[in-house]
């Protein structure tokens, strides 16, 4: 199976000098230095905590996206899926208050409902791509529109708000810290660790890479391609539901503007991290750095008034391209070959 990912093989042999592996880390360090130079308050404890907490939404979703993309798929529906799950969670919890009170039970019902919806939504995407034989881009473009309009419908065009009575119980999930780190960051760490093991240390992970590099060969190698591919979408759905569970207590609301463009941010985080968009090679560690880079860019732009507000998109675009260029550029490759000699 490892033969199908030769580039991955060569990387693991000399991790210390490989610019491809180090690219995202270098980009993140450079960004942090830039942030510090622009404003020393950038490295204050409060800001670092904010940054990590904020990264966890996109980060958790992007860990799921790493599996989908590694196996040669794509999921455009994650942002809308997060919005509709958040909306349904709020509706369910609000109506559960009457029966189960404002305690932990209601929050657990909400969280359970989120997980079920996430798994289900992911399975639908997976089923339609594999058994339905529709391209993943089209399936998830379709579900993206469906989920987005559903949340608008549930909210009657407005905003769904969590009952104030439950907010007190649920609030700590976003705002409280455990051993110095906010709960969402712990969730991010946990998801990343499980994701890393799953992709790098299990047969399932190797199957994902095999399918991504050559689906036909994987099929002839007796891999149940449809099942593995569907599983990647289910994992993606689960990640979305976990991200939603920590998102809802932040502001206690969901509307049609919730999670807009999260799909593109998640995909960008995955690609910045070194995973190949056409599949076959994936890196969970890189994805985490990618998510941190994306959030840091936004954070730094808020810390300075040197750049016109209207150019925020330009800065983000430039930094994303540079971060990917750091690991893909020819200059990196020639250097590496020289070192190999």
């Amino acid at each position: 199976m490892s033969d199908s990912a030769p580039s991955g093989e060569s990387k693991t042999r000399m991790p210390h000098f490989d610019i491809k592996i180090m690219g995202p880390a270098i980009a993140l360090v450079l960004l942090c230095i830039l942030g510090y130079v622009l404003n020393p308050a950038f490295v204050s404890e409060g800001n670092i905590t904010n940054l990590l907490t904020r990264s966890s939404f996109i980060g958790i979703i992007a860990v799921g996206a790493t599996f989908v993309i590694t196996a040669g798929g794509i999921d455009l529906s994650v942002g809308s899926m997060a919005a509709v799950i958040a909306g349904i969670m709020i509706i369910v919890m609000n109506s559960a208050v009457g029966t189960f009170g404002t305690g932990v039970t209601t929050v657990l019902i909400g969280a359970g409902c989120s997980v079920i919806l996430g798994l289900g939504a992911g399975w639908i995407n997976g089923f339609l791509t594999t058994k339905g034989k529709i391209e993943a881009f089209i399936v998830t473009l379709g579900t993206m529109g469906i989920y987005r309009s559903l949340v608008t419908y549930f909210a009657d065009g407005g905003t769904l708000s969590l009952d104030f009575a439950i907010r007190g119980t649920y609030r700590p999930i976003y705002y409280d810290s455990f051993a110095g780190l906010p709960v969402p960051v712990w969730m991010f760490i946990l998801v990343s660790a499980v994701g890393w093991i799953l992709l790098n240390r299990t047969a399932f992970g190797r199957y994902c890479m095999a399918i991504g590099s050559n689906e036909a060969v994987a099929k002839y190698s007796a891999i149940n391609v449809d099942r593995i591919k569907t599983m990647t979408y289910v994992i993606q759905g689960l990640c979305v539901s976990l991200a939603t569970i920590i998102y809802v207590p932040r502001l206690g609301s969901a509307s049609s503007s919730t999670g807009v463009l999260w799909e593109l941010e998640a995909i960008a985080a995955v690609i910045i991290g070194g995973t190949v968009l056409k599949g076959g090679y994936g890196r969970v560690g890189g994805t985490i750095l990618g998510a941190l880079i994306l959030t840091t860019i936004g954070n730094i732009l808020n810390f300075t008034d040197l750049i016109s507000n209207y150019l925020n998109g330009t800065m983000q675009g430039l930094i994303i391209i540079i971060a990917v260029w750091l690991q893909r550029g020819e200059w990196g490759r020639s250097k590496r070959i020289k070192k190999a000699e």
Partner: peptide, 23 residues
């Protein structure tokens, strides 16, 4: 002190304000 776009959106309002408070 400064002005940033929060896009008439709660999430962006939260994040931009967090950064203003740190800054």
């Amino acid at each position: 002190l400064d002005h940033k776009h929060a896009n008439w959106n709660r999430d962006d309002g939260f994040e931009v304000m967090q950064d203003f408070l740190s800054r």
